[in-house]
Amino acid sequence: MSSPEINSTQQDIDTPPTPLAPAEKGSSLWRDAWHRLQKNKMALLGLVVMVAMCIIALLTPWITVYGYEEQNLLLGASPPSAAHWLGTDTLGRDLLTRILYGSRISLAVGFIATAVALLIGVIYGTVAGYMGGRIDAAMMRLVDILYALPFMIFIILLMVIFGRNILLLFLAIGAVEWLTMARIVRGQVQSLRQQEFVEAAVSIGLGPWAIIRRHLIPNTLGPVIVYTTLTIPSVMLLESFLSFLGLGIQPPQSSWGLLISYGVETMEEYPWLLIFPGLALSLTLFALNFLGDGLRDALDPRASKD
């Protein structure tokens, strides 16, 4: 039993503890996920595009030459030129400037509304999934009811009661989007709750909040992050849609949805007014979708280390 060959397989008999050995940094699931994400070139590209967009959006007031409401009625709608790279609109406003300012609104709506959805959805879903039984049934029926409400009417009502307000728009969209998030998280938590490590936590004596916070929420993060990246584009589309209908952002402020709706009206004469905002929105949606796709694969716990 002392053949060296044997010893090599007894990985389970650990080497005697050496107190001075430096602790090896574990390769966490996150780092594995990051490794896998790096292999997915499209997802990486999506990430780079998104980061670049956010930086540009933040710096917009300092890098633009024109103001977003700065009109040049003499110029009118002009096609792309050296002075106005993406052309101007019918009021002679620089389109590039308006797209950049629009990105601030669109991205902010995307991120803030998604954050609202995330916060409500994760907490609500976790509580429902963990409590189970009647509480779960009651909570999820409420979600079903909200799902059934036509959300356009809901938002129009909000706008009528509280007036037009960008913050309200964020909240309204977030308040609609959390429903799906809650369902996803609840499903996750229900299956996690059966796992032995949650039973182990109970037998240690942990209370429900500690279990939810330490054991359940961290384990739902994978699917949640993925769903989040897929929610952001859908929220941005929603804002575009609302602005398009005249319920969202109002001129002279600008958002991509607004620009697109404007562009549609003048599509025949001044196609660049539709094409460039459309491209900006599409680029963002592509980037986020590729990123979300990549994250889904990277965070899949079933994926091996390769």
Binding site: Q11, D12, I13, D14, T15, P16, P17, T18, P19, A21, P22, A23, E24, K25, G26, S27, S28, L29
Partner: peptide, 22 residues
Amino acid sequence: MDDVGLAHAAIRKYPHEFSGGQ
């Protein structure tokens, strides 16, 4: 960790990095 025969170096590792016995 001494008590159950785990090397101290493993303290920052995650479960999936261990074999079933560990």
